[in-house]
Design a protein around this nucleic acid. Structure first.
Lengths: 329, 329
DNA sequence: TTGTATGCGTTATCAT
DNA sequence: ATGATAACGCATACAA
């Protein structure tokens, strides 16, 4: 006997419809069943307002239609937009999303991986900064923008090509003396390739290029000091700057303007990511746009279709240039 | 016998440790047990790399430590920051988040509520625009910024007070002719109170106030037309404008400037939400800041502590004014 | 304090 | 095609 307020179970539905338990299960799962039976079961379900218990289902079938998504936070609009895209891809496949914000904490990241494993998720998509991350073999995991090892597939945009593109666009727009600005870990990771591509293109184009790379945790003002060092008689040594992210580019533009320089007339700036104000209004700056939808779709596809077993461990998606007011074109 | 690759179960741990199943369960759940037993069990867990199966656990205990969060999307930085705060509050209580993006689709919203119910979540926190939403009795649901009915508790910031505050600040800064701009549903909902508070304060202060309220789906250019109608000889009829959101305020500022008006010298603008560029840099505009952390914490508390049963059906949190460059002060 | 047995709601394998 | 029944992994009441 089921208590009054307890959620109805298949058994209740079976009794209500006057059929066997198995029949209800079949109806619920769309397995062929006699028409009159189906009808009665459906009516009973409606009457009792029955819903399958996903715990029991998951326990039995060891399939959760759940994917864990790990990002540092949602405050950064790049991460937020990425998660938004992943959600769309997941939803289109009837998957649900378990969201974890790691706040860049390696320990949290590891814990969340274990938690996801224990939640019996069907896959994990993570944007992690923890190169030591221990990845369980039981769950397919795909990494965005970070290459851990060859057994963890990584999806990223073409950071190297993006760096090249930035240099090419700046030179195309008349720049003859470039700079690259970056803050963050020195370790070889994807975003570092932005620098490599940029430097490589500068060399190929025969344009001098100065690098200013700050360690994680350095104050932003170090960049301003750097700029001031290169400011002589109100004129900056550089006429083009590539910033590793739009966020940095935005701040640099503000700094330059408050130093009396005109952007893009005196200095042209290109950022990276393709972030827009309020998520969907205009670009903050001229930028290299990451293909978020593609990245999301690729990750979801790899994880839920278990396609990652027969895929190269690294997928690189093409980026594009977008004008955002901080370059001539 | 458990297959080689299958995840180990409590039974496996029990066998490995040479104890009974129940003992393992107790150790896992922190229930007192003999020291030597505990030790052996913990070692066995470590050896087998055992993790509890949350399905089996949930099925047995009908407690999931899962909360569903429903918002229209994550692209809007206000929603993203809100979800970020909710995540923090949830995590601090060892709860996990199931995230649904509804894209403002009432049908999706309803489906997600059912889905959450079926996932046996311990609660639902939603920011929905569907006033027809059918709320199941089986799951505590709290709504942000939308009042459905008295049996669905609603947490929101003090929209009315925020409207008043906006008017007061503008007048304090010397404005003598105000306007209110809004787009969205005319129905009586929380954001509508922003207008009411604003109008009420204008009356109290004896300052004239013009309203321009567009229906959902109207093009933004309608606002520009409105502004142009009130532009005579390069001078706007209004010297202060209150916009229903920061996003709108941002666009209005751009429009005004491109019309040759100076902000804040000629016209002062106040938005609503307290959104910052890149999530944590500066405000887009002078604004009425919503207390996101408080809202999140309140919702989580109500839902997981089941505190909503003994709470007023409506909680109103105080807002603050923040200077963001589009007012004199 | 430790071990045993039962049932949570579902699916899948059987006979019928 | 339909109905009975045995797991799935865990927690807990109860017996030892």
């Amino acid at each position: 006997m089921s208590t009054q307020n307890a959620a109805p179970t298949m058994k209740d539905v079976a009794r209500e419809a006057g059929v066997a338990l198995g029949t209800v299960s079949k109806v619920v799962n769309g397995i062929p069943v006699g028409d009159s039976y189906r009808q009665r079961v459906e009516e009973a379900i409606e009457r009792l307002n029955y819903r399958v218990n996903s715990y029991a289902k998951g326990l039995r079938s060891s399939k959760s239609f759940l994917v864990a998504v790990m990002v540092p936070n949602l405050v950064n609009p790049f991460f937020a937009s990425l998660v938004n895209c992943i959600d769309r891809s997941l939803t289109a496949r009837k998957y649900k999303m378990l969201l974890f914000a790691t706040d860049y904490d390696p320990q949290q990241e590891q814990e969340y991986v274990y938690l996801a494993e224990q939640q019996k998720v069907d896959g994990i998509i993570c944007l992690s900064y923890n190169s030591q991350l221990i990845v369980p073999a039981s769950v397919p995991l795909v990494s965005i923008d970070r290459c851990f090892s060859t057994n963890v597939p990584c999806v990223s945009s073409d950071n190297y090509g993006g760096g090249r593109l930035a240099a090419e666009k700046l030179v195309e727009n008349g720049c003859r003396n470039l700079a690259f600005l970056r803050i963050g870990s020195q370790l070889t990771n994807e975003p570092n390739k932005r620098k490599d591509g940029f430097v490589s293109a500068c060399e190929a184009l025969g344009v001098p290029c100065t690098l200013k790379i700050l360690d994680d945790g350095s104050p932003y003002t170090d960049f301003e000091d750097f700029l001031r060092e290169h400011l002589h008689d109100g004129k900056l040594d550089f006429d083009g700057i590539f910033c590793v992210t739009d966020s940095l580019a935005y701040q640099i533009v503000n700094s330059l303007r408050s130093m009396g320089l005109r952007v893009p007339e005196d200095v042209q700036i290109i950022g990276f990511d393709g972030v827009r104000s309020f998520g969907d209004l205009e670009f903050y700056c001229s930028t290299i746009v990451q293909p978020l939808e593609d990245i999301a779709e690729t990750c979801v596809d790899m994880v839920v279709e278990r396609r990652w077993e027969k895929t190269p461990s690294m997928v690189c998606l093409p980026v594009t240039y977008a004008y955002g007011g901080t370059t001539r074109q």
